[in-house]
Write a protein that binds this DNA or RNA. Structure first.
Lengths: 233, 233
DNA sequence: GTACGTTTAAAACAGACGTTTGAGACGCTG
DNA sequence: CAGCGTCTCAAACGTCTGTTTTAAACGTAC
């Protein structure tokens, strides 16, 4: 997942994929989400994509490289949208047309996540699930790439939340960022622990419904007063 | 994962494992967490356990059955402790010696999770991570078993939270249960999305520290006032 | 028309996988 | 000591894996 080159107007140039490569990407994305990286064979991918087996190694060097391509195709546009949101918030706060509070920072994540979840053309909710697989499966290569090329994304959110919650220690801000993003991330990914027991009463697949419930929850959590005796007071 | 038989005094009888079977269970637990089910080969497990390859199929019928045994060995004692906690809370609330509020219900989950995380003899934090892999990998067999044998565990928590938050609609209670347990579960499992970017400032591996920060966060979220216009008001 | 780079096709590669086999070792009971 | 169930061991089974190879088809430029 190397950083894509930029065209003259600064918008990223998406690598051009051939018809065959695109069919592979789409079948692979669906199967990686449903079965995981290891359990998905190239033969199953090419069969569902209706292409030849060797096409994978021709268009994408290897299975691992295919996985990275699948991930990068969805992740990079989304991450850039998050950065744009943060930039817009800072600009409007400087201009005095917006409050720089926890809700505003949170919405810089919620809006891109919601837009992504509702847009099948960009992978929709499927990619968010793939992302959560990456998280728990802890792919080494992808972790290195995310850390190297996109670590500043987290840094930006961290600084923004610190500015939105003045008076809190850096440690306390880090924890609220951690917990807040955990809920939101897993809520959008549909990782419902209660559903595993077949007893979840929420239909956690509707993105708008997720936002409606997760936003007040996280806002309340982020604004929580630290417990008495907390070292992070 | 069939329900274990009960001895005369009602305490569950843990299946007796031979020395070899135990070595397999322990090596498998560690490797399943680190590599996942598919990526962990029986040859690697038996090699690290210092036993013969065929011992796995002798002691545990198949690889899938081994995985279920690994999971059940840790899960069942923990789930029973959760049920005991809920029972104790109900008893003390009836006796008037305890308040039946959201915090009390939440602690019925936090205490067992904390105790488990700090006890290496019961799998410690390792098992919680394994559990979270089960969640996103969505193993069919395990899901069926959890739903059939342990669905009532979730029902109990759900009823308890509904009782602790009177005046809220069932849908609203379900969402707060879902979101609250999501944070707690993934916090204990150490599924830190920020860490994936190498920029997490929290050392989310210390169970006591997790509790200290996650409890106020979740309590605030669960007590959050629903947004205006919410259908779940 | 012919040469060329690009893409597809079928087949084969070596290796790893989960599982099974059959023989032998061990510890008990009579 | 003999008999027997429990367990271990090395070897092999057939299947599936990611990858490579070889040949053929395609569109385009000379």
């Amino acid at each position: 997942m190397k950083s894509p080159s930029l065209s003259d107007d600064g918008t990223p140039v998406e690598p051009k994929y051939s018809e065959t490569a695109l069919r592979i990407l789409e079948a692979a994305e669906r199967l990686f989400v449903e079965l995981g990286l290891e359990a998905t064979s190239l033969r199953l991918i090419t069969q569902q994509a209706g292409v030849n087996l060797a096409a994978v190694n021709y268009h994408f060097r290897s299975k691992a490289a295919l996985f990275e391509a699948v991930f990068a195709r969805r992740f990079e546009p989304w991450a850039r949208e998050c950065l744009r949101e943060l930039g817009r918030l800072e600009a409007r706060a400087s201009a005095g047309t917006a409050r720089f509070d926890a809700e505003a920072v949170m919405m810089c994540y919620v809006r891109p996540a919601l837009a992504l979840s509702k847009d099948p053309a960009r992978g929709g909710a499927l990619f968010v699930r793939l992302f959560s697989r990456v998280l728990v499966e802890n792919h080494r290569v992808l972790r290195e790439t995310l850390s190297r090329d996109w670590g500043h994304l987290v840094t930006r959110y961290s600084e923004a939340l610190g500015r939105a919650l003045p008076g809190l220690s850096a440690e306390e801000v880090a924890w609220r960022l951690h917990l807040g993003f955990s809920v939101m991330f897993h809520a959008f990914a549909g990782n419902d622990i209660l559903k595993l027991f077949g007893r979840s009463a929420v239909s956690a697949r509707d993105p708008d419904l997720i936002v409606k419930h997760v936003v007040p929850f996280v806002l309340a959590g982020m604004g929580a007063v630290p417990r008495a005796g907390s070292s992070a007071q």
